[in-house]
């Protein structure tokens, strides 16, 4: 079976800054993949190119066997690519429930028989049931992060792109969120997760990729990637000869 997501030679530069330098990466269906890398390594831009918000200068994105490089974000969403934003972007004036309804009504390949039912179930799963009628703009940070996840799930994705969902949370909140991500992964959704909170990431992913200056410098099982000398030097700041 071909991989769910195939990225081939994806490049992007903003002026003189190269944020993606011919990145190639395959993600099999159902995999949980973590991405680490220092600030400015090109992680979020990579997501933006997969989700369709930023057009690459070169290379292609193949999802579920179809070339989606030229498709706008809404079409990719309907094919099964869901994205949670680094800084949560709820529809502030809509209720939490209505936020999910947008994705359930518009973000799916096939119309749901009962989108409201699906949304209520997802709210339950994400611990937001009691906040269903709360205005999304009035949520706390943890609640907003949960809402990003819940809204992404409402489009019934095959691939979930998580951009620093654990950042800014307390230790307890972080544990709760990792448990939620794991429960989502257990339903068969492939996950690509960018995260600086490495211990949170490592507790949930089966594969780790390290990105630096727009290139992949390590790719493999998390233990090996973390132990890699270049990753240690670039990301953890430990000199290679130490």
């Amino acid at each position: 079976m071909p991989p769910l997501l195939q990225i081939g030679g994806l490049s992007k530069r903003f002026g003189a800054v190269v944020v993606a330098d011919a990145i190639s990466l395959d993600v099999p269906a159902g995999q949980a993949l973590g991405i680490i890398g220092p600030n400015g390594a090109g992680k979020t831009t990579l997501f933006a190119m997969i989700a369709g918000a930023v057009a690459p200068d070169a290379g292609r994105v193949v999802f579920d066997g179809a070339d989606i490089t030229a498709l706008p974000p809404e079409r990719r969403c309907r094919l099964g690519v869901a994205r949670s934003f680094q800084i949560p972007r709820p529809f502030g004036g809509l209720s939490v429930f209505e936020n999910l309804m947008v994705a359930a009504e518009f973000g799916r390949a096939e119309k749901s028989a009962n989108p409201a039912r699906d949304c209520v179930d997802i709210l339950d799963q994400c611990g937001l049931a009691d906040l269903a009628n709360r205005r999304a703009g009035a949520l706390t940070l943890l609640q907003r992060k949960r809402l990003e996840l819940a809204r992404a799930l409402a489009s019934k994705p095959k691939l979930l792109l998580l951009d620093e969902v654990a950042g800014g949370l307390t230790e307890d909140e972080c544990v709760a969120l990792v448990a939620l991500v794991k429960s989502i992964h257990a339903t068969g959704v492939a996950i690509v997760w960018i995260e600086h909170i490495v211990h949170a990431l490592l507790s949930a992913v089966e594969r780790l990729v390290a990105l630096h200056a727009g290139s992949i410098i390590a790719d493999g099982i998390p233990r090996d990637v973390i132990a890699d000398a270049r990753v240690a030097e670039i990301y953890m700041g430990i000199p290679a000869d130490a």
Binding site: A51, A53, E74, R89, P90, L94, V102, E105, F106, G107
Partner: peptide
């Protein structure tokens, strides 16, 4: 209608609406 839901979503965040399947 569901179009109104999309409109209100666009009103608050166009990029997020698009990322969630709305053809803005």
């Amino acid at each position: 209608s569901r179009w109104g839901l999309a409109l209100r979503a666009i009103h608050f965040d166009e990029a997020a609406a698009s990322a969630n399947g709305v053809d803005v």
